[in-house]
Nucleic acid binder design. Structure first.
Lengths: 209, 209
DNA sequence: ATCCACATGGGACCAAGGTCCCATATCCTT
DNA sequence: AAGGATATGGGACCTTGGTCCCATGTGGAT
């Protein structure tokens, strides 16, 4: 029911670090997957699941910070834990400002990393649940016909059927028909449901004068 | 209309740093106020306004990080920019995890600090506007009588007057009376308004089965 | 003792929302 | 040419919501 098993993506160019991190994760029952470079990770594709990244900062070609930026731009929101052998304050601040959940210096305490990973997984799960709900609602809204969508906007803005009919230059009867079909398609039982769905999906009401 | 003028609170035990930061802020038209210690700042009281803190990490008695924690516990949400002469990675990560907006190392570029301060002020303004709105709504909800509050919860959950009457073991007529008084007190013109207010104030609907 | 806020509710309406069955017209696809 | 999705709307009917005026009872504050 939690959806999918969370996966810990380990990205480090040092094979011994990868092996040791993988062992650590598996020792506490976590699923881990290793990559020797950011490029290799990016080629994997499909990160639909939850989990987090454990990411080395300094790597050839694409640095950890660059990868973080690329993932953000691509709309991939896996939490990132940085590990670094030669991290500096500006580097860690940049990473944290960009949304990293932690930034650990090697050598680090294994338990510290595990704690951080757990926090990241929890965060990822919460965020994914929210995104999924929002996505689900947006899909339903997308399934509305153009006319239904117009009526929808006005309904969640608090307009009465009569006012909606005026604005759309049609009859109140037709508005009622659309409205019924909106409630069915959106799977909303009450107006309160519908308004809350719009809020969750970030759909703003219109100015009601 | 922006509410109140933002104030930059400078907290550093070094008088020359305070003077120079104050001069820097005033040179770009910002209002600054200096304090030699966290204690001195805490004694000032009333931080109703917007603005941000520019805070030295290492200070006698109460460190910058301690002050950050105290303010968070006290529910004072001014953004914090740390400045530090001997900052370490773990220190900066702790500060950022606790919500700091930036962490600069001395000597820093003056423009970097000003940029950070501007970002912090913008953030503070947005967050304050949100908190104020939430607070305003919560006050209105608090002004409801106990019975009105019960009806309110059920209304925003999508229940019909008849169902509400059943649950509260009263008549539909009485529910209508309460409902009208709720709409007036909450300054809501439509049900959609009321539901959105409840959402903004973080008031959850009940299970409507 | 009196006043006020709170909760209750009847009667009478009217406005608004929802749901049937019905029908027409357009446009697009197969 | 036929079917499906979309948009339109009339008629009939019932439910729900909102708003008047009215009234009663209780408990606490002045």
């Amino acid at each position: 029911m939690t959806g999918t098993e969370p996966v810990i993506f380990i990205i480090d160019d040092d094979p011994s670090v990868r092996r040791s991190l993988e062992r650590l994760m598996k020792s506490v029952g976590l699923v881990a997957e290793s990559f020797a470079s950011a490029r290799e990770f990016l080629q994997r594709g499909h990160w639909a699941e939850t989990g987090c990244l454990v990411l080395d900062v300094r790597m050839p070609e694409i640095s950890g910070l660059d990868l973080q930026e690329q993932l953000a731009r691509a709309g991939i929101f896996l939490p990132i834990i940085f590990i670094s052998g030669h991290g500096t304050v500006p580097m860690s601040v940049r990473a944290m400002k960009a949304g990293a959940t932690d930034f650990l210096l090697k050598p680090f305490d294994e338990q510290d990393l595990l704690d951080s990973v757990q926090r990241a997984i929890d965060q990822a799960g919460r965020e994914k649940a929210q995104r999924d709900e929002k996505q689900e609602i947006r899909e339903r809204v997308g399934a509305l016909t153009p006319r239904e969508h117009e009526v929808f906007s006005l309904v969640i803005s608090g307009f009465m059927n009569k006012q909606i009919a005026d604005r759309l230059k049609t009859s109140e009867k037709t508005v009622k028909v659309h409205r019924a079909s909106i409630m069915a398609k959106m799977d909303a039982r009450t107006l309160a449901d519908l308004v809350r769905m719009a809020e969750k999906a970030g759909i703003q009401p219109l100015q009601s004068k």
